[in-house]
Every structure is written in structure tokens, then in C-alpha cells.
């Protein structure tokens, strides 16, 4: 690497400008969420946070029953994420560590579900769930989403690369398959499971279409739908952006927290095994 100091300086400068451009929309959304209605339309635009933060956030909190929406999202996202992880651990453990008749069949149909995202079966999944009487319920939101081809595939790869001596050692020590799974295998795959948690939680938290059709009662909505609900449609009134942005900010905080907190696992457990 023969690089002059000047080239390196330019490189960093360019990157810093790019970081600022990428961060700016979210920073600006935060600024808007902290100023008064009048200031939203002031020219030149305000670029520093104002003093209306608390007023805007408490108004937003009450305007769409935000607390309830956030709790619904949290229940939906956590149950879906842990459900997916749990089911994929069990399936991939069965596929890798046992010989049984339908092994390939089970793996094949699990992978096949990759080709069946919600839009390719939207009417009929709705019909199935409504025939169970599950419209406007947590189980109706969660169960259709908890199969995971991604998780099964990733964990199968990881489990296959675990040294076979570890399983033999567990047997010698008098342990059975489940002891091995919970005491040895899961701790070994910890980083990969954390990475899986990151992508699955973000995926679940950001679901939109399925909650939209399966919940008709505003009390069962998820927070993603709350944003659309607070943006006025048509009419002549100016949207109160200073009260819309707090909803946007609340909606982004949980997944943002997850990716920043678990970023290292995300990279090590998901992207690097790719190499």
C-alpha cells in the first residue's frame, strides 16, 4: 500500500461527507420532532434541535395510542423472532444429527418456503387465519410468520461444521442428544444465533403487509401502521410534521438499538461465515 498522506486524507474526508449525507435524514427527522409547528416551515430551515421536544412527543404518544402500538410490535416481533430461532434450532438439529426417513423431505420443504413470501399467498393465508377465528389476535399475527428457512439453513451449516468429537464426548459422559443440544451445541452457535436474532428481529419489527390485513382493530395494530395513520391524506391542512416525526422516531428506536448493540455478532455470525 503506497499511499501519500494527502490521498489518505482525501479518502477520509470523502467518507466523512458520505457518512453525514447518510445520517442526515434521521438527524433532520429528530430536529423536526423537537421544534414548533411554525418552525417546521421557516426559511432557512432549522438545523438544530428546538425546545418543543417534550410537547411533541407527548402529543404524538396520545394521538395514535402509541404505547399500545409499541407493545403490540414488541410482542409480535419478540415472539416471532424467538419462535423462528427455536423452530430452526430444533429442525436443523434433527436434520444434522439424526438419520430418519423424511430428513431430506423436511429440509426441502423448509427451503421451499423461501419462495413463498406473504404476497404470493396473501388472500389464502388470510382465509386460513380467519377460518381459525384469529383475526385481530396475537396468534393470528405470529403463527403464520414463525417458520424460518433462513434460520434452518444457517444453523444447519453451522451444526455441520462442529467437530464430531464433541457429540461423542457427550455420549461418553453419559449425556443424551438433548443434553448435547442445550449444553454444547447452542453455546457453540451463540454468535450465529445472535446474528440471526438481529436480522429476524429487524425483519419482524418492520413487517407491514401482514399486520395491515390481519388487524382491523386499531388496538391490535403494530407501530409501523401508526406512521401512515398520523400522516393526513388529502385535504388542505398542512401535516403537523413536528408531531409526525416523534412517531417515526419511536418506530425506529428498538431495531436501531438491536443492530447497534449486536453489530459485532451480526457481522461475525452472519456475514463472515459466508466467506
Amino acid at each position: 500500500m503506497h499511499k501519500t498522506k494527502f490521498q489518505s486524507f482525501l479518502n477520509h474526508l470523502l467518507l466523512i461527507v458520505l457518512v453525514i449525507i447518510v445520517i442526515f435524514p434521521v438527524y433532520y427527522a429528530f430536529v423536526i420532532s423537537s421544534i414548533s409547528f411554525k418552525e417546521v416551515f421557516s426559511m432557512p430551515p432549522k438545523l438544530l434541535p428546538g425546545t418543543n421536544l417534550m410537547a411533541n412527543y407527548s402529543h404524538a404518544w396520545n394521538s395514535v395510542n402509541l404505547g399500545r402500538l409499541l407493545i403490540n410490535s414488541l410482542i409480535f416481533a419478540l415472539f416471532t423472532t424467538f419462535g423462528k430461532i427455536f423452530l430452526s434450532i430444533l429442525t436443523s438439529f434433527a436434520i444434522v444429527y439424526f438419520d430418519f426417513r423424511f430428513k431430506n423431505f423436511i429440509f426441502f420443504i423448509t427451503l421451499l418456503t423461501l419462495m413463498m413470501p406473504v404476497p404470493v399467498r396473501i388472500m389464502s393465508t388470510y382465509e386460513v387465519v380467519s377460518s381459525f377465528g384469529w383475526i385481530n389476535s396475537y396468534q393470528g399475527l405470529i403463527f403464520p410468520m414463525i417458520a424460518s428457512a433462513t434460520g434452518t439453513f444457517l444453523l444447519r451449516q453451522i451444526f455441520m461444521s462442529v467437530p464430531r468429537e464433541l457429540a461423542e464426548a457427550t455420549i461418553v459422559d453419559g449425556g443424551g442428544p438433548l443434553t448435547f443440544l442445550f449444553k454444547v451445541l447452542i453455546p457453540i452457535a451463540k454468535t450465529n444465533i445472535a446474528a440471526l436474532f438481529v436480522i429476524l428481529f429487524i425483519w419482524a419489527w418492520n413487517q407491514y403487509l401482514w399486520p395491515l390485513i390481519i388487524t382491523t382493530n386499531p388496538n391490535m395494530n403494530v407501530v409501523q401502521l401508526g406512521i401512515e395513520a398520523v400522516i393526513p391524506k388529502g385535504g388542505t391542512a398542512l401535516p403537523k410534521w413536528n408531531q409526525i416525526m416523534p412517531v417515526v422516531i419511536f418506530t425506529m428506536i428498538p431495531p436501531l438499538g438491536v443492530i447497534l448493540y449486536l453489530q459485532r455478532s451480526f457481522v461475525q455470525g452472519l456475514i463472515e461465515p459466508e466467506k
Partner: peptide, 16 residues
């Protein structure tokens, strides 16, 4: 071990 995921996949994905 594999039946829970199999049931979910069948009812909520393959059948629809």
C-alpha cells in the same frame, strides 16, 4: 424435533 416447524410450514405456507 422437526414436527413443529413442519406443521407451521404446511398450514400457513404450503397450503395457502
Amino acid at each position: 424435533l422437526s414436527i413443529p416447524q413442519f406443521i407451521i410450514v404446511t398450514i400457513f405456507i404450503l397450503y395457502p
